[in-house]
Design a protein around this nucleic acid. Sequence first.
DNA 1: GTGTGTGAAACTGTTCACAGCT
DNA 2: AGCTGTGAACAGTTTCACACAC
Lengths: 205, 205
Amino acid sequence: MPRYNVPDVVVRRLPLYLQTLNHIAETGQKVVSSTELGRWIGVSSAQIRKDLSYFGAFGKQRLGYEVDYLRSELKRILQLDQDWHVLIVGAGALGHALVNYRAFEEQHFVIEGVLDHDEAKIGQAIGTLVVQPMSCMAQTVKERHVEIAILAVPARAAQSVADQLIAAGVGSILCYAPITLSVPDDVHVAYIDPVTTLQTMTYYL
Amino acid sequence: MPRYNVPDVVVRRLPLYLQTLNHIAETGQKVVSSTELGRWIGVSSAQIRKDLSYFGAFGKQRLGYEVDYLRSELKRILQLDQDWHVLIVGAGALGHALVNYRAFEEQHFVIEGVLDHDEAKIGQAIGTLVVQPMSCMAQTVKERHVEIAILAVPARAAQSVADQLIAAGVGSILCYAPITLSVPDDVHVAYIDPVTTLQTMTYYL
DNA sequence: GTGTGTGAAACTGTTCACAGCT
DNA sequence: AGCTGTGAACAGTTTCACACAC
């Protein structure tokens, strides 16, 4: 299991492979070739074989890949064979949508709390959770072993909230605000913003 | 203006440059160097200069870039100097959050309608819009000149809705469902899914 | 025969380093 | 003197093509 030199692009493709394998498994198909898997996702068969080879040899010569086996190996590689504890900051429309998004729990991302700064939102129920004040951040992160935070606050608040999260010990941040956060090297940040994405799509139109 | 051979990664960075320039403009700063801009975003100065050079020469030797001028050039390159007409499909929690997200209109993405398949949601008001049935799709796309659709429906419905959107003439789709859509070559698809993103982050934890 | 795993080749993207301009 | 714009060098990523296993 040579894990040292894996390009980031490769890691970003693994969840796609996993998703597609899950989909294929639902149809009852037991074995899949790199060519077939690639057709689903729109990548070449060589790419899939090369990507997987960074982590080991999971296929069977002349057959292809056993769907269930490759699924479990991908889950292991991505550390998805365990629960992860997530804190959502921001209880606006987006925060609501995130808390209600069933796919998190299904994929072992357990939402441990929702925080907001706004007095009017604190105490409000969202699903089985209750919106808590920002002052609960450090305690929740520690007690619930939160590794990942989802930042669903306005852009002007994002950097300050990120700083607090990092101080509280959060190692990964998924940021919905359209700004680039400044964080220490050991903190991982990913960005999701529909406007930014649309702004690249218009180039091609 | 040599527009032919621009790598996709470059186009994806341009909105980041624009965002950061907007931010810098708010502080009143008139001129910025590639080094300073790069520090904000976390890319090298050479990268910024090289990226911009695909589209022309926008800087002033010994000075740097005029913030307002580079902003307007980036907007022109990305075709953001005009309104775009967007249709949202899916009026669940996510659809609501999207319709209420002010940044779309601010950045000239005008939401022309929200559709849903669910009888219970049709007729419901979201902001200034009213949820319409799926049967309105083709008409809305044509009459409101919709170029871009945002797909905020469950994964199992996404492919079928995408097919309908493409048949109606939509050229770009922003898909929130965690599946890879199968579309003709001339249709552009981008994906946003928090679970997929989290699944790559856990690798590094 | 058929599909994996993998070095080597081809291609793409990034960084370097410096000429040129102001 | 200082910062852009850019060819050339370098690094990273993808594709090719084939040995190998069944």
